[in-house]
Every structure is written in structure tokens, then in C-alpha cells.
């Protein structure tokens, strides 16, 4: 396909019995900012390592800039900048020297490297700290230096693995804005992994939801919501309590659940923290209220939920394991 800078087809990687990445298909277009969103241990880092050719896939194929990273890792690494999770620098060298070293490894002359490094340090806001040893850098400064380190090779694609980990909120915002700015300015494709939904939402054009080694949904945030909740966009939360009669509450509850399930349009009913959640395709509040009224239970609260990003997150990462 034209326009795709990264193509993953049927990618699988196993560690013994454990499948870290399971039959992954993903295309990333040139120039976009793509967010790989998933909880810890979802296989995001493994996928990134395979894209870079640092780990070989067990099955499937990776194509980056039209190249196969397993066959020509050096060519791929020339075009792809990678900022690892918890990037490390040589603490006894200054920020500038660290950048110059990377630049020299990419075949730049020392003078050109020094020039570029100085420019980039300015760009990421570290101009005053270039001659300070990296051992004395703060976490946020290290990440920004990491970004400069990735950019110094003038890459076509940059891959950032959990780049915002451990930075304070203001720093995160600044850092993400910087990434977005740079990407738009220099037309760099960015692949960015995170488990922070809000950060991904802030900068990414498209998002891939990644859980348990599988890609669940791809698209922009709106697409995601409709992909994930397309069948039942409304959830009605019903709070009930017993009216004090002798019959045990649980039996009553089961009856209500049954009654609710029989309403036309209700997809599923489940109980959560004493409240009933009914997933429906349309707004069925009236019908549900009637059903509850007809039982002997008292209606305590009623709440209609529409889905936001948080729900996407919780749906998949916390409560939604059965969905997988």
C-alpha cells in the first residue's frame, strides 16, 4: 500500500508459552502521529523492538520505509529514531557530547555533529544545559535530551516508548507539544506508545488499542468509541434497594435483572457495586424505570452514561477482560 511507512502483517512473537504479540496487523501512514495505547505488558515494547529489528518476529512480516528490519537492520535504524523507555546517557559526558556521539555513530563529522547538536539542544529547550553532565539532568531534561538524540539523525520515523513516564504534568504537556510541533514541522512520522490515554488523545492523529498482544481497535478517538461501543452506545445505571419486605434482596434483584433483560433493545444487564448497568442500543430509560417500578424494589438512582475516553480505557484495561 502506498503511503504506509510502517506495515505489520501477521506479526507474532512468543516467549516460551507466553505470546507477547499475537498476529498483529497494523499500517501507519507517512507523517501521522500514531499512538499505541495499552496497559503495561500488552506487548507494545516488543512490537517496537520488532519494528527496529532488535528482536526477530516468530511469524509475520515487518516493513519499515519499504525495508525489512530483520534483513537490513542498519538501513532501518538509519531512518528510524528510537527513544527507549527510560533512556540512558553516559553520565560522565555532557548533554552536548552525548548528542555528538550519537551523531558520529550516524556518520556525521564531528563539526557537523556539534553544530546540529547545538541547534537541537536549543530546539528542545536545553540550550543552557548543553555543557552540563547528563548525570545532573532531571528526569524531564533527560527525556528532552532523548528527543534531541532521536532527532539528530534526521529520521523519517521516530518511535517513542513511554516517553512521558515519570515527568510531571506540566512537563508532559510541554513534551507532547514539542513532539507534535516537530512532527508537523519536519513531516516526521511518530509512533508513540503509552498507557496514558489523555496524553495520547492530546497529540495523536490515530490510536491503536493494544491489549494482551492483540490490537483491538484502530482509529481516531471518535472512531474508537464507535468501534468499541457501536452496538450499545447507551448504558443506563439503575440504583435499587429493597423495600424492607421479608424476601431476600438478591432474589428480587435477579428478578429485576431478568425483567430488564427482556426489554426490547437491552443488550445486556450486569451488576456492579450494588447498581445495575443496562447496555442498550437506544435511550430506554422509560422502559427500565417501569420495569423497576413493577418489582418490589425501590428505585434509588438513575443515571445515563455516554462514553468518553475514560470509559474506553476502563472498559478495556480494567473491567473489560471478558471482551478480549
Amino acid at each position: 500500500m502506498a503511503g504506509n511507512i510502517i506495515e505489520l502483517t501477521g506479526l507474532t512473537r512468543r516467549y516460551g508459552q507466553f505470546t507477547a504479540v499475537d498476529n498483529l496487523n497494523l499500517n501507519i501512514k507517512k507523517g501521522e502521529i500514531f499512538g499505541l495505547l495499552g496497559p503495561n505488558g500488552a506487548g507494545k515494547s516488543t512490537t517496537i523492538l520488532m519494528i527496529l529489528g532488535l528482536t526477530e518476529p516468530d511469524e509475520g512480516r515487518v516493513t519499515v520505509c519499504g525495508l525489512d528490519p530483520t534483513a537490513s537492520p542498519v538501513e532501518v535504524k538509519r531512518r528510524v529514531g528510537y527513544l527507549p523507555e527510560e533512556v540512558g546517557f553516559y553520565d560522565d559526558l555532557t548533554g552536548l557530547e552525548n548528542l555528538v556521539y550519537t551523531a558520529c555513530l550516524n556518520g556525521m563529522t564531528r563539526n557537523a555533529a556539534r553544530e546540529n547538536a547545538t541547534l537541537l539542544l536549543e530546539r528542545v529547550g536545553l540550550a543552557d544545559h548543553g555543557n552540563k553532565k547528563t548525570g545532573k539532568y532531571s528526569r524531564g531534561m533527560r527525556q528532552r535530551l532523548g528527543l534531541a538524540d532521536v532527532l539528530i539523525k534526521e529520521p523519517e520515523v521516530i518511535i517513542l516508548d513511554e516517553p512521558t513516564l515519570g515527568i510531571d504534568p506540566a512537563g508532559v504537556r510541554e513534551f507532547l507539544d514539542l513532539i507534535a510541533e516537530l512532527s508537523h514541522e519536519q513531516k516526521i512520522t511518530v509512533l508513540f506508545s503509552s498507557h496514558h490515554l489523555h496524553q495520547v488523545q492530546q497529540v495523536c492523529d490515530r490510536v491503536g488499542l493494544f491489549v494482551g498482544g492483540k490490537l483491538l481497535a484502530v482509529g481516531d478517538i471518535k472512531d474508537l468509541a464507535s468501534q468499541l461501543f457501536g452496538e450499545d452506545p447507551y448504558t443506563i445505571e439503575v440504583g435499587i434497594s429493597s423495600t424492607g419486605k421479608t424476601e431476600p434482596e438478591t432474589i428480587k434483584k435477579d428478578e429485576v435483572i431478568k425483567a430488564l433483560s427482556q426489554i426490547d433493545g437491552v443488550k445486556s444487564v450486569r451488576e456492579e457495586k450494588g447498581r445495575l448497568l443496562a447496555a442498550c442500543s437506544t435511550d430506554l430509560t422509560d422502559e427500565i424505570v417501569h420495569a423497576v417500578m413493577n418489582s418490589d424494589l425501590r428505585l434509588v438512582s438513575l443515571n445515563m452514561k455516554s462514553y468518553g475516553l475514560d470509559d474506553i480505557y476502563y472498559h478495556y484495561f480494567e473491567g473489560g477482560d471478558d471482551h478480549v
Binding site: L54, K77, Y82, P84, G88, F89, D91, T102, G146
Partner: peptide, 14 residues
């Protein structure tokens, strides 16, 4: 341990 290995290995070197 310093985390420099993965950074250096992602440079275009064998």
C-alpha cells in the same frame, strides 16, 4: 544498567 545499550543499538550500527 545505564540504559545506554538500547539507545546505542538503535543507531545504524551492527
Amino acid at each position: 544498567n545505564r540504559g545506554t545499550l538500547s539507545r546505542v543499538l538503535s543507531q545504524p550500527i551492527h
